[in-house]
């Protein structure tokens, strides 16, 4: 999208215009509907800033959701934050900051006609983006392995041998099969569980939202009864996973839901940013940019900085909860 904004100055060549009367003396970098370079540059800057404002409001919705969930479940956030790897998050923050720095330097190189420096800075920025995503990949896979995921699957034991055996055993148990509430079987990471018959979730929805909020669907036991598992069972459970932690607060899955939403959307923006940086690099190699024509680098850079700026808030909000 920011490509579209940044690219308007090339419009000139696209169409045959019948305005020879005023085209003479027109800067080739200035599109036909602008009077001057300054007007075009200012328009592009205002345009990209308005686009960044929409990005902020786009993420803003998620920040509000985060705030509401955290106010509702403060214990969940301080508990679940410890499952995130602060060191990896911190390194990622530094990687993004450094790539922002190289991006800012790239803009400077473009402004001052340093083509070599521009290409080097853009490549470094691109490497930073890749580094960020690689670290993110390791974080995500680690969490998937421990089943620290969103939704109901959070409550399925991690995919280790023991849990797998247990899941297999449960699969044959008729009670468990009917008790599971699955809207979409694919939401279970474990294929064995996906094979279980699905129960329409709407049945739960309508019955369970009573005035006191305590009515249960399908005759599921009320929390009072379910709250006291047999003491012996706790010792049988496999140690080390979130499900065996007696301090696991209710609704912990919500932390991971919003975590994946926010970091996932941010990750999508990083990928889009990589596309923009790659395109800029290609054009820089082609020699498009100079002190007379650097608007695309400037606006693309602004987009990349907003990605950094959002991460600056995501990092303490998820990784640094005491």
């Amino acid at each position: 999208m920011s490509q579209t904004i940044a690219n308007t100055h090339t419009t000139h060549a696209d169409q045959a215009h019948g305005h020879d009367d005023h085209a003479h003396g027109h800067d080739p970098h200035v599109a036909h509907h602008f009077d001057s370079m300054a007007q075009q540059f200012d328009s592009a800057k205002l345009g990209i800033w308005l686009f960044l404002a929409t990005e902020i409001l786009f993420f803003g919705g998620l920040f509000v959701a985060y705030a509401i969930l955290r106010m509702r479940n403060p214990e969940v956030f301080s508990y679940a934050s410890h499952y995130l790897d602060t060191i990896m998050g911190g390194i990622n923050t530094c990687v993004l900051i450094l790539s922002s720095l190289t991006m800012a330097l790239a803009v400077r190189c473009a402004q001052t006609n340093r083509r070599g420096g521009l290409i080097v800075c853009l490549v470094l920025t691109f490497m930073g983006a890749i580094g960020f995503l690689v670290i993110k990949y390791f974080e995500y896979t680690h969490k998937f392995h421990d089943n620290l995921v969103w939704g109901s699957s959070f409550y399925v034991p991690p995919h280790d041998a023991e849990g797998h055996a247990e899941a297999m055993a449960l699969k044959t148990a008729p009670v468990a099969a009917t008790a599971i509430v699955v809207k979409d079987p694919t939401l279970f990471a474990i294929p064995d569980l996906a094979a279980k018959p699905a129960v329409d979730v709407s049945a739960v929805k309508s019955a369970s939202v009573g005035p006191s909020g305590m009515a249960r669907a399908n005759g599921t036991p009320a929390p009072e009864q379910a709250a006291a598992p047999a003491p012996g069972k706790l010792e049988e459970a496999h140690p080390g996973t979130h499900l065996e932690d007696t301090k696991l607060p209710p609704n912990t899955h919500l932390f991971f839901a919003i975590y994946y939403c926010m970091t996932g959307l941010h990750g999508i923006h990083v990928v889009a940013g990589m596309g923009i940086i790659a395109w800029l690099t290609w054009r820089a190699v082609r020699g498009d940019f100079s002190s007379k024509n650097f608007t695309a680098v400037d606006t693309g850079g602004l987009y990349w900085h907003i990605v950094d700026l959002i991460w600056i808030f995501l990092f303490p909000l998820f990784y640094l909860i005491h």
Binding site: V156, E166, A167, V181, K247, P250
Partner: peptide, 21 residues
């Protein structure tokens, strides 16, 4: 809901009998 919501709870019951629901 107090405690875990019903949808989460049924999954926990089915999959991790030892879990602190």
């Amino acid at each position: 809901f107090n405690g875990n919501p019903p949808e989460a709870e049924t999954v926990m019951q089915a999959n991790a009998p030892g879990a602190p629901v």
